[in-house]
């Protein structure tokens, strides 16, 4: 049950805005009634005592993929460049955004969609940077999907030619499968994780376009081989763009920022 309006959400996602405790919007699919319109003739394909095989040959994720394409069309029409940030919890997605947005917003408008199971903590942090942000709370959900992003982007006051950063739910497995309509996927790992992460969770590295190794300021204190990690990531996906940085100290941030600005300019 929704704690704000008391309605039954059944684990559905909710949109929230920082500093607006009375604002919440449920991401529900429009339920169209299945009418009793069995207008076509059934008799001609009735087989006594046995079932009838119906071919579907339909992509299981078709609904999500179609909606993702609609999102993509919306972004294209408005010149919005959308990035989908993926990582396990705690690898520094929000910290990286916090670090880079103040510089980026001098160059072009930036907006953020935050995904978490609960709280507006991350959206509150982004709100403090003075850019439009909306929080998607997925409830029990382990990933964002195209419908959630579709609803969120309509609530977000985005300017044309913006950079839209979509921070997915912290999870290195499930978000890999769900296209949101983004231009590129960015996977972040930190040196406090294992350098074999790309081999243990290959799907997300295979789907990603960019890989960022974060927290490199901690390299002297942890057993993490950055070169080995890169090699492992490249084994899974040799097209990956690779960056090493520390969102905390700012080391390596310039290269990532330059790449982003150059990509935005070409976009």
């Amino acid at each position: 049950m929704c704690d704000t309006c008391g309605c039954s959400t059944e684990g559905g996602a909710v949109l929230r805005k920082p500093g607006q405790s009375d604002y919440h919007l449920h991401v529900n699919e429009h339920e169209h009634a299945h009418g009793e319109h069995h207008s076509h003739e059934h008799g001609d394909h009735h087989h006594e005592g046995s079932g009838r095989k119906v071919l579907l040959e339909q992509d299981v994720l078709q609904k999500n993929n179609l909606l993702a394409e609609r999102n993509r069309g919306y972004f294209e029409a408005r010149g919005i460049f959308a990035l989908n940030f993926l990582s396990s919890p705690g690898s520094g997605k929000t910290s990286l955004l916090e670090k880079i947005i103040p510089a980026l917003k001098q160059r072009f408008p930036v907006a953020v969609i935050e995904g978490d199971q609960q709280t507006t903590n991350d959206a509150d942090r982004i709100q403090a940077l003075g850019v439009p942000v909306i929080q998607i709370n997925t409830g029990s959900g382990c990933h964002l999907d195209a419908l959630m992003v579709n609803r969120a982007m309509k609530e977000l006051e985005m300017q044309d030619n913006s950079l839209l950063c979509i921070e997915n739910v912290g999870n290195l497995v499930c978000p890999a499968l769900f296209d949101l309509g983004e231009a590129l996927k960015v996977v972040i790992i930190s040196v406090t994780e294992g350098d074999d992460k790309p081999l243990k969770y290959p799907t997300i590295f295979h789907e990603a376009d960019i890989c960022i190794l974060n927290k490199i300021d901690l390299l002297p204190y942890v057993e993490f081989d950055a070169a080995k990690c890169r090699e492992n990531a490249m084994r899974v996906n040799h097209h990956l763009e690779w960056f090493e940085l520390s969102a905390k100290t700012g080391e390596g941030l310039a290269a990532w920022q330059e790449w982003l600005e150059a990509t935005m300019a070409q976009h």
Binding site: G51, R52, V54, L56, E57, D59, V60, L61
Partner: peptide
């Protein structure tokens, strides 16, 4: 990842 068919 496809739904191939179903029997009804």
């Amino acid at each position: 990842f496809l739904i191939q068919s179903m029997t009804i």
